[in-house]
Amino acid sequence: MPGARLTQEERRLIAAGLTAGLGYGEIARQLARPTSTVTREIARNGGPSGYRADNAQRATVRRSRRSKAAAPRVPEGSASTGDGRDPAAVEEYATQLAELLAQLGMPRMVGRVLACLYVTDCGSLTAAELVQRLGVSPASVSKAIGYLEGQELLRREREDGDRRERYVVDDDIWYRAMLASAQRNTVLAEFTRNGADLLGTATPAGTRMAEASAFLDLAGTDIVRAVQRRRRQQGSGEVVPPESDA
């Protein structure tokens, strides 16, 4: 049961649980499902405020049809990876990851390219391989690659004697992404600080700007410290315990 697709009735129970204000864990326990299954289901179908059971069911049917239609795009010999993994399940996970990234604000095609790269063991693919796996145009892949390069989420490399470029995601992709986020917070903090000076900190608008600036500045500093601490601990092999709010 835990590995099976959600039924329409289960989706209705999820919707009812959200309406009742239940947490994801409680909804998952009622369905005897992993919390991660419920979390992904809600994230890819409108989030907690926009989730609708019937819409989610129709979207699942559409994705299933697209997956069947896309079957010929899977390279020959990939039906069995030899490592015990189910290629169809890996492909579905990549789709879910791309959907989640889109929910979080990343352009949809960019998320698809990043997810496709991220679930490969080698972490690298050529443009042609991305076009084949995703079933999209080379121009779409090229545009997504440009975006990801601009965010420092991948790099290009070319092996000796090979004219084809490969696009690579490193193991520290999220480290760099979080640092980029901290830098954006710093820029926004400075801008809102200027707004506070312009409006006057004695005015409600100026106070609002000043508070926003202080928060963004602190958030950026905390992000940088957290990722650097994680980096140091990984380099030393130290086991990193989960952070406590206590």
Rank of each mutant, 00 (worst) to 15 (best):
1 M>Y: 06
1 M>R: 12
2 P>Q: 13
3 G>N: 14
4 A>P: 06
4 A>F: 06
6 L>H: 04
10 E>N: 02
10 E>F: 03
10 E>L: 00
11 R>M: 07
13 L>W: 01
21 G>W: 00
27 I>Q: 04
29 R>A: 13
29 R>I: 05
30 Q>Y: 06
33 R>I: 03
33 R>W: 01
36 S>I: 12
37 T>F: 02
37 T>C: 05
38 V>R: 00
39 T>M: 11
39 T>R: 15
39 T>Y: 11
40 R>G: 07
45 N>F: 02
46 G>A: 04
48 P>K: 01
50 G>C: 03
53 A>V: 09
54 D>W: 04
56 A>V: 04
58 R>N: 10
58 R>W: 06
60 T>C: 05
60 T>K: 08
63 R>H: 07
63 R>V: 06
63 R>F: 01
63 R>P: 02
64 S>H: 06
66 R>Y: 00
67 S>C: 06
68 K>D: 14
68 K>N: 14
70 A>P: 02
70 A>Q: 07
71 A>C: 00
72 P>F: 09
75 P>S: 04
75 P>Y: 06
77 G>A: 02
77 G>V: 00
77 G>M: 01
81 T>S: 15
84 G>M: 01
87 P>D: 04
89 A>I: 12
91 E>A: 15
91 E>I: 08
92 E>M: 12
93 Y>D: 10
93 Y>M: 11
97 L>C: 13
101 L>C: 10
102 A>M: 05
102 A>C: 07
103 Q>P: 07
104 L>Y: 09
106 M>E: 10
107 P>G: 05
108 R>H: 12
110 V>G: 06
111 G>H: 00
112 R>Y: 00
114 L>P: 04
114 L>A: 13
114 L>K: 04
116 C>P: 05
118 Y>Q: 14
119 V>T: 15
120 T>C: 08
120 T>A: 07
120 T>Y: 03
120 T>L: 09
123 G>C: 02
128 A>S: 09
128 A>D: 12
129 E>W: 00
132 Q>V: 05
135 G>S: 05
136 V>Q: 10
139 A>W: 07
140 S>W: 00
141 V>Y: 00
143 K>Q: 14
143 K>N: 14
144 A>R: 05
144 A>F: 07
150 G>L: 00
151 Q>H: 07
155 R>V: 09
155 R>K: 09
156 R>Q: 15
159 E>Q: 12
162 D>H: 08
163 R>W: 07
164 R>P: 00
166 R>W: 06
167 Y>C: 08
168 V>G: 05
168 V>C: 10
170 D>G: 09
172 D>V: 09
173 I>G: 02
173 I>V: 15
174 W>P: 04
175 Y>W: 12
176 R>S: 04
177 A>C: 03
178 M>H: 09
179 L>R: 14
183 Q>I: 08
183 Q>F: 10
188 L>Q: 15
188 L>D: 14
189 A>Y: 03
190 E>F: 07
190 E>H: 13
192 T>V: 12
198 L>Y: 15
199 L>G: 05
199 L>K: 07
203 T>M: 02
203 T>G: 03
204 P>R: 10
210 A>Y: 14
211 E>N: 12
213 S>Q: 04
218 L>T: 12
219 A>R: 15
224 V>Q: 06
226 A>S: 11
229 R>L: 14
231 R>S: 12
232 R>C: 08
232 R>V: 10
234 Q>T: 10
235 G>S: 09
235 G>V: 04
238 E>A: 11
239 V>H: 14
240 V>D: 14
243 E>F: 02
243 E>Q: 09
246 A>Y: 08
